[in-house]
Every structure is written in structure tokens, then in C-alpha cells.
Amino acid sequence: MVRIGIIGSGSTIGIAQNHIKAYQCCEDAVITAVYDIAEGRAQGYIEKLEMKDAKACSSLEELFSLCDAVSICTPNSTHVELSVTALKAGKHVLCEKPFAPVPEDCDEALKYAKETGKVAMIGLCYRDIPGFVYMKQLLDEGVMGRIFFVREEQGGDRIADPEVKLEWRMQKELSGPGALADFGSHMMDICDYLLRDICGPICDITAMQDTCIKEREIIGKPGEMGTVNNDDVACWICRTTGGTLYNFTASRVGATFMLEIVGEGGKMTFHGNRPFELTLQLKDKNGGYSKQPEVVPVPESCYGGDKNAPRVPFAINFYYEIRQFLDAIQKGSDTLLTFERGKYIQTLIQYAQDSADRQEIVHINENQGGNQL
């Protein structure tokens, strides 16, 4: 039985609850400790999510004394420091994405992950969404042939409300980029994971950004406004070494979750509000379109085969992320979601940010980290 500590419960989105619910589906894990810097919040989460074996801890040291592994669900700027602290304490680490505000901040965590030999995973869990699993299967089978272009959009609607206060994710010093990092980390991970073997790694990036709501009320200071200093919306285009174009839009002021891949063999489209199906419009690779788009359910083989996996949108991919973490701890299983992967994705985000800042195309070569996994 792996004893789990949860660091950070959150006051808005509360990504920790996705981790907690996934652990609660696993018979070989128990949540024994929860810590949050806000007094009373950890106890509130314990009661809300019925963690009967968990203690609300008053310090990280207390939490570490009660667990074998941790999920870090805190603001981006704290990820590396907390990961290092946990690794030094001898704990396995699953850290939420994005890994850090800038990629060079990640290096210390990579160092201690290597030195300690502990499992060190980054939370890029969207690749276990059944629709994406099915996409990967079709791509690997060669159904799409040569890929012409890709279009992906992710985001959220909550921050479209100007009454939402100035959160840490709207402050560059705490978050790094805004929508670009928050949603772009998943977007570039998914495209690279699905298509790298066919299209090659990303080698060129050009980006633009905008902050749509430039001031918000400071939390705890009624009537006092503060500046939003990172992006609400980011649009960027990437070219791979194989010549394929990826077109990304990330928005926290309203967006649709979708991924469209167009190639010689036709079109396949994933819709985030229907994660258990794909829309396919396939064609002969040497001919034109003669069929209408067809909505196709994801085959049973793409659900992972685990009877404990919840057949609920997004709960299923968080479950498989947690399952991968636990199997790596107990069985020594490999994980693709290493800290190295987290830094690579953060590096791509930084290149996009550099492009937006400099208003020019950024060219990536292998020496700059463009071909790292």
C-alpha cells in the first residue's frame, strides 16, 4: 500500500480533487496526509472528499512523515522547490504541469530526481483520454498517411468573467506565461506524442498573444485593482522537421477543446466534450473525399482494460496517470511522463513566448533542446 500526501488543495479550480478521486479508485493507495498553506483548507478538503485516513498537516515535514509519495498541486512557481524538497525527503513525486515558469528552473528538480532514483513524474495526463488513444492507434496504423496540417484549441470559460479576481495564474512571476503555459503544455505534449514518429519534432515556432482583461481586483483588497501581466489568449504556429504545420490556440476567456488532424487519408477530429468518440472523414490517399464525416465510438481496446478506471470524461485519464505513478513506484514500470519530458514541453512554451516577445519566428535546433524527449 502506497501512502500518499497531497500538497496544495487549491481555492479555485482545485486540480487536487482530480488526483484525490483517482487515488480513491486504486486499492493499493491510501491518502494519509494533506497540506495547504491556507489554514483550514486541507481539513475542508478531507471532509469534502471523505478522506477518512488522511490528516490535515500543519507543515511539509509533518506530511512527509506520513507518506511515501506526493502529488504536488500548487502554483507553477512552487513546483520545482516543492519537488526538490520532497525528493530530498525520500518521497516519490507526481508534479502538476506546467513544470515551472521558465525551463531553466526545472534543472534542480531533474538533478535530484536522478540522484535519489525516486519516481519523478509530470502531470501531462491528456494522452490517456480514450479519443486520443484511438487517434494514436489510427496514426500508428498508417490510416492517415502523410500529415498535411494539425489544428488544436484548448482553454476555459471561467476567467472570461471580469469579476474573477487577480489569481496567481494571471501573474507572470507566479505562473510564467498564462494560457500559453496552462493549456499549451497539454496541447504541445499531445501533438508531439501523437505525431512525432510521423512528422518529426517541432523545429520552428511563431506566436502572438493578447491580454483581454488587463486589470482585476486584487484578492483580499476590495476595490483595489491589479495588472494582469501574462496572456489571456495565445496563438502560435509550429513547423516540424518533416514539414507539417501545427496551428494552436489557447484561451482562458472562452475556448473549445478540439484537435483536428488532416492528411492524405482524410480528416480525424477530437471534440473535448465528446472524449469517447472521434469524427472521421477518411478517403483514399490518392483520391478525393467521397464520404460524409462519420462519428465513430472509441473501441473498447482504447479504454486501458482496467476495471477500476472510471468511464467518466477526464476522470479516466487522471486515473491512468495515477495508475502509472503507482506502478512505477511499486513495479519499477517505465513512465513517459518524466521530469525530462516536463522540461522539454516547458522549453517549447518558452520558445513560443520568445517568439511573441520578439515578434519573429524562433528556430529550434537539437543543441537548443528541440529534439529532446
Rank of each mutant, 00 (worst) to 15 (best):
E62D: 11
I219N: 01
I329K: 05
D357M: 01
M188C: 05
T335M: 06
R274E: 15
Q171R: 11
D204Y: 05
V295A: 14
G332D: 04
E62M: 10
Y246D: 03
A109W: 03
V312G: 02
C106D: 10
K21R: 13
S59C: 06
C106P: 06
R239A: 08
S251T: 00
A309I: 01
I198M: 11
L180F: 07
R252D: 11
I345R: 04
S59E: 06
G369K: 10
Q171I: 13
V312M: 11
D36K: 06
I205R: 02
A113I: 08
N229R: 06
G272S: 08
C212M: 13
G155C: 07
I72E: 02
Q292D: 11
G223C: 04
T211P: 03
S59K: 04
I261Y: 11
D140N: 15
A120Y: 07
G304W: 10
F325P: 08
C125P: 04
S77I: 06
Y319S: 02
T249P: 00
S355T: 05
R323L: 10
C73P: 09
Y112H: 12
G40K: 05
A250D: 01
A100W: 07
G265V: 12
L373H: 10
A109S: 08
L138G: 12
R252W: 05
L60I: 10
R311F: 09
C212F: 07
L166A: 05
D306W: 02
A328H: 00
K88A: 08
V93S: 03
G145D: 01
F314V: 14
V133R: 15
S65H: 11
V80R: 04
R169W: 09
T206K: 14
S83R: 03
A89S: 14
L348N: 11
H271W: 13
R274I: 06
I329F: 04
T279W: 08
V143A: 14
G44V: 07
S185M: 08
E115W: 06
F99S: 09
P201H: 14
I218P: 03
K214W: 03
P162E: 03
P293V: 10
A352L: 05
N247W: 05
H186W: 04
Q137M: 14
C25Q: 13
N229V: 01
K88Y: 10
